[in-house]
Design a protein around this nucleic acid. Sequence first.
DNA 1: TCGACATTGTGTAACGCTACACAGATACGA
DNA 2: TCGTATCTGTGTAGCGTTACACAATGTCGA
Lengths: 330, 330
Amino acid sequence: MSDVARAAGVSPMTVSYTYNRPERVSADSRDKVLRTAAELGYAGPDPSARSLRYGATRTLGVVLGEHLTYAFDDPQAVRFLAGVAEVCAERGYGLLIVPTGTGDEDPERVVSAAVDAYIVWTTTDDDPVLAAACSTRRPVVVHGGPEREGTTLVGIDNRGAARAVGAEVFATARRPAVLSFPVDRRRDTFVRPGVDPDTVAYPVTRDRLAGYRDAALDLGVDWSEVPVGVCRTNDAAEARAVMGRLLAAAPDVDAVAAMSDQLALGALRAGGPVRVSGWDDADVAREHGLTSVAQSLREQGAACAAAALGDPVADHRDAWRVVRRASTGG
Amino acid sequence: MSDVARAAGVSPMTVSYTYNRPERVSADSRDKVLRTAAELGYAGPDPSARSLRYGATRTLGVVLGEHLTYAFDDPQAVRFLAGVAEVCAERGYGLLIVPTGTGDEDPERVVSAAVDAYIVWTTTDDDPVLAAACSTRRPVVVHGGPEREGTTLVGIDNRGAARAVGAEVFATARRPAVLSFPVDRRRDTFVRPGVDPDTVAYPVTRDRLAGYRDAALDLGVDWSEVPVGVCRTNDAAEARAVMGRLLAAAPDVDAVAAMSDQLALGALRAGGPVRVSGWDDADVAREHGLTSVAQSLREQGAACAAAALGDPVADHRDAWRVVRRASTGG
DNA sequence: TCGACATTGTGTAACGCTACACAGATACGA
DNA sequence: TCGTATCTGTGTAGCGTTACACAATGTCGA
């Protein structure tokens, strides 16, 4: 910048004003500065220096959990991101996907991201990256959970919703079952009856599991007899395989509550149970006549972004409803 | 930082070394510094200042085109992003989605993003944002096109691929048709016969259209008789509607080459033509037995990221193949 | 002719950090 | 006892910018 100033025969401040407050500078100097800048290949103030000076970066950081790679494969996460991106674009904020690799590296690294606030996608209670984000004293908005002092939480009442859809899908069942997201950071797949919600590290998964258990108890079903199939990723093909194992272990299962439409689709394809419910009411649910818990992740993403930027956010706890379709008898 | 230094009774440099070269500092001072930092709520060096000092941000910028919102709705773009994200996560780079709104605002704003390099998703020849990115003198990698002096281009030979799949889908057809992406930034939808590829502003769309025309000419079909349906977004529902209009105008159409599997799916659902081909070989193509041009956008995303970071990249021009399925007679 | 006021340009200082060169202390073999 | 090497801490300078206060000019009405 000082080169440009020298070459144009003005002071650096004039150059600065040319870019930031063009009206503060005479048309003459402005033209001269811009011409000189073009000649010298100067493309405007350096963003890092500017952020340093301003104390703000006009960028939101999104932490997508320990496996960034899964995030883009998960249509839910993508819809959520779309909501965040929408608000960012509107306000001219950048959207930084914070690099988190295998989860083994130093979580403090996340704080080396130049952002004004963090949005954290559903994670575990003990996620070190969440802790690191909080330690920066920048605003932190968490989607789904965990709830944490000093952060804003955006999400629905997963337990209540699970109970409601569970009542629907388990209604006439003799042997209900559940298809679940991972229960801890190791993301093992397994099938086991009566998984205790309290042992689940992801708050969202924990709440949904507890809600399904509520529904089972409401119907007088012994939870310890309810097989739970845990899938590593939110993927229909994997869910189908896990469902196969579940049916091998408990062939009389005739109803499955799944934590996503993708998992539910896998259950349908495994060809076993009569009644199936999903979650999120994605296109795929509509196409396959799947009973599902409708919620707008896009809206929640937008709400997270707005909250991160300091706007007051509406309570989303009741922003869900059960959509009944053929997969639970219409 | 200087506060911490003062409180811990050491110099700022010692604090700096504590974070950046812990081994350069005695265990005593290190502990003292970290303890003091924790007390004062100091969470490590400020990223902006650090970038300024280093002259690098360890962040890659991705420009998703004039309508950020569409990008996340487009499964192709998402897969591409997944590839970029993968490389970023591996190397500890952040991935910044550069805010581009309606396209009306000052394109120079993109250069106000603190990134080390830009990756530009398929855009038009005259995209002002691309120009702005180039003017920063930071490395620019373009996916798909346009080709531009001083930038790296990653992408397949769209014309060749379109010609090949066109030969397949048009083979026994009496009246071929095309379902296309938008032809310019206005993104109008329309149906018109013989759209001239040279009038198309998006290089990728232009090349594919030219390839389809090549295929038509190879079969002795008069291009000016070939109806082209242009869709605003990469969405099956919209494609179905456009296909309906196309069939209304030309009911004898019996083969459709579509520029994506989503568009092809829309064509299938419109229930008209016998032969249909898609593009990208997504899950949806496999499920519906759709002949498609297979290419790995994820790999191309990864290649773009690698190129942006200065790695030499393999040529992707021939990284495609036609997958024949039932939709063109097996 | 003078002061009040608007317009335009400039210098200083600071944003928070780290490369570099150097200083003091300690250890060790000769 | 001395020189040399190693370890640890510090000061300076500068990365590129902009807020702020001020100076230099021009404009205008009284």
